[in-house]
Lab assay of single mutants.
Amino acid sequence: CLCSQPSVTRTVQKDGPNKGRQFHTCAKPREQQCGFFQWVDEN
Rank of each mutant, 00 (worst) to 15 (best):
C1V: 00
C3Y: 02
S4L: 07
Q5T: 14
Q5D: 05
Q5R: 10
Q5N: 12
S7W: 15
V8T: 15
V8R: 11
V8C: 11
R10L: 11
R10D: 14
R10Y: 10
R10M: 13
T11G: 07
T11D: 10
T11N: 06
V12E: 13
V12S: 12
Q13P: 05
K14S: 14
K14C: 08
K14L: 12
K14D: 15
D15P: 13
D15T: 11
D15L: 06
D15H: 11
G16Y: 01
G16C: 07
G16V: 03
G16H: 04
G16S: 08
G16L: 02
P17R: 08
P17Y: 04
P17G: 03
N18T: 07
N18I: 04
N18H: 06
N18G: 05
K19A: 08
K19E: 07
K19V: 09
G20D: 03
G20L: 02
G20T: 02
G20K: 02
G20R: 01
R21E: 02
Q22S: 11
Q22H: 14
Q22G: 07
Q22K: 07
F23W: 02
F23E: 00
F23R: 00
F23K: 00
H24R: 15
A27Y: 05
A27G: 12
K28Q: 14
K28G: 08
K28Y: 04
P29T: 10
P29K: 13
P29V: 11
R30L: 14
R30F: 09
R30S: 13
R30P: 13
R30V: 12
R30A: 15
R30T: 15
E31L: 08
E31A: 10
E31C: 04
E31T: 08
Q32L: 08
Q32S: 14
Q33H: 14
Q33I: 00
Q33T: 13
Q33C: 11
C34S: 00
C34V: 00
C34W: 00
C34T: 01
G35K: 13
G35M: 04
G35Q: 09
G35I: 00
F36D: 05
F36L: 02
F37C: 03
Q38W: 02
Q38L: 08
W39S: 05
W39M: 06
V40A: 14
V40P: 03
D41A: 10
D41L: 06
E42S: 13
E42P: 13
E42R: 11
